[in-house]
Design a protein around this nucleic acid. Structure first.
Lengths: 115, 115
DNA sequence: TTGACATATTCCCATAAAGGAATATGATGT
DNA sequence: ACATCATATTCCTTTATGGGAATATGTCAA
């Protein structure tokens, strides 16, 4: 089996750094049209269009025609799915208890490394 | 250019669903050894070991030798990076203002779709 | 040392990717 | 209809994948 398509889900789509960059640009409110994204990212236009196609496929962005150009916007709900997944582990780095546990495990590891 | 290696960063590493599954299993506290992960995921042992190698490479998990087996644990700080990235867009789905904006944009799109 | 167990690594295949170049599609103004 | 601008799509090449099968490494017990 090969790697899953980038269009298979949100996580595969955001694996590519340029696509995360595009999302950030769109979320910041500036750079809505493809041309603006091309200028901001310094990527070639076809590359940007292809990245946008992937983001569209997984529902991370939406398009809106505006004359000759097309305006892109992030779709917050799909972005939230990433947040939700990561958030389920929040307690691991938040709770004091886990910090203590982590320290204990580090020490245990140091000990076992000496054997 | 080809796709970036899965070991290039946390985002590429978690693109693979099985690796997310493994992280969830490790975070839940159960299933620490490779053998336990093999049973829980129903994947072949080499497959699990390879996924763990990727997760190790990006620092998402740490290993600890324990006799014949090796105990894996999630590294919260690397998981937090994913959370932090997604969290920066939190206001997009939280604020009432953006909900209104989204509704307006949907209507604008409906209008433009008729042209 | 030898054997059994747990895990990691190597080799293989089929599949998919990202960017570049070229081209197609689509809308606007004349 | 036509030229032009904005964007999307196709074709190409190089590279990396994930799983299966086989094998290597490492640890324990007798």
């Amino acid at each position: 089996m090969s790697r899953a398509p980038t269009t298979s889900d949100v996580f595969n789509a955001i694996a590519e750094p340029r696509r995360r960059e595009i999302i950030t640009l769109l979320a910041s409110g500036n750079s809505r049209s493809v041309g603006e994204l091309v200028r901001a990212t310094r990527l070639a236009q076809p590359a940007v269009s292809k990245h946008l196609a992937v983001l569209r496929a997984v529902g991370l962005v939406s398009v809106q025609r505006a004359g000759k150009s097309r305006l892109y916007a992030v779709n917050p709900s799909e972005l939230k799915r990433v947040h939700d997944w990561a958030k389920q582990f929040e307690k691991l780095w938040t709770s004091q208890l886990d910090r203590i546990k982590a320290r204990a495990e580090r020490k245990a590891q140091e000990r076992s490394a000496k054997n």
